[in-house]
């Protein structure tokens, strides 16, 4: 059994065992077929989706995408992307629950359109109300510990801190903050969401002990999305295996790897 695959090392999200620690977004792919093959290649068991206005001139757009989603066989995680207030996010979550038939919601309340930074006040407000309404909330948040505490207090059993602004591909901008959050919540599922651009970013998050990563743009916008999905899957697995294997701490000074004893005097 691999150290990072299978039920022996499954990620538990709201009581559900998830074998793959790579979550995949479904947006911005060149075609539905490339999306389908990317999801398959990634091994992702959770894919994120959204709700948007249906056009009266083409009433089947949503149905077609829903049918495509069902063919993936993955669990669907709807988001509230684009919502700027708790009220908008709550209404969107309620609509998503009916359409996608799940009480899981990736809660996003956006504060700023340039950075897509979470509005942490609105986020906590919406999380409190949604958990009371029976939702299982996965909040897109910052690495701020005080916000994390409030979200956990609101009933969130998973947190999804950003690495960097959505779609920026900048990687882990505040590794210290992410390490602090991981250390403070050693047993809470933590999934890095947003801002990862390269598989090495994902591997680093897993090496730090994060439970998973959510990737969208880095795969969807790659020259070869399917191959990049494979690369992220391998990076996530490598990072997880490394974390569980015990990564040696850095040293300030050199330490010879060849034996010192028995050196010849020449």
């Amino acid at each position: 059994m691999s150290l990072a695959t299978g039920t022996a090392d499954a990620l538990s999200i709201y009581g559900e065992a998830i074998s793959s620690r790579l979550l995949l977004g479904t947006s911005q792919y060149p075609s539905p077929d490339i999306l389908r093959r990317s999801v398959e290649a990634s091994g992702a068991e959770i894919v994120t989706v959204s709700l948007r206005r249906e056009s009266s001139g083409d009433v089947k757009t949503g149905q077609h995408f829903f049918d495509l989603l069902k063919s993936f066989g993955a669990r669907v995680l709807p988001n509230t992307a684009g919502c700027h207030t708790a009220r908008e996010a709550i209404t969107t979550a309620q609509m998503a629950r009916e359409v996608f038939e799940t009480d899981w919601i990736k809660l996003e309340v956006i504060a700023n359109d340039d950075t897509l930074q979470p509005d942490v006040y609105g986020l906590v407000d919406a999380a409190e109300k949604l958990t009371r309404d029976g939702f299982k909330v996965l909040p897109y948040c910052t690495e701020d510990l005080s916000v994390a505490q409030r979200l956990v207090g609101a009933g969130c059993q998973v947190l999804m801190p950003w690495a960097a602004p959505i779609g920026s591909a900048r990687g882990l901008m505040n590794p210290y903050g992410l390490k602090t959050l991981r250390a403070f919540y050693p047993d809470l599922p933590l999934i890095v969401d947003a801002g990862l651009g390269a598989p090495s970013h994902a591997a680093l998050a897993l090496e730090m002990g994060y439970d998973g990563v959510l990737i969208n743009t880095a795969v969807a916008k790659a020259a070869d999305s399917v191959a990049m999905a494979v690369a992220f899957a391998k990076a996530v697995e490598a990072g997880r295996i490394a974390y569980r294997s015990g990564i040696m701490p850095p040293r300030d000074m050199a330490s010879p790897s060849s034996p010192v004893a028995g050196l010849a005097l020449l």
Partner: peptide, 27 residues
């Protein structure tokens, strides 16, 4: 939000704002 089962009793008046959403790709 108006659930599917309650649309039949949700009366419309002038100036109402209606949103009709469906599944889409998302990140």
């Amino acid at each position: 939000f108006v659930p599917k089962t309650e649309r039949i009793t949700a009366e419309l008046t002038d100036g109402d704002t209606v949103e009709i959403l469906s599944p889409r790709q998302g990140g």
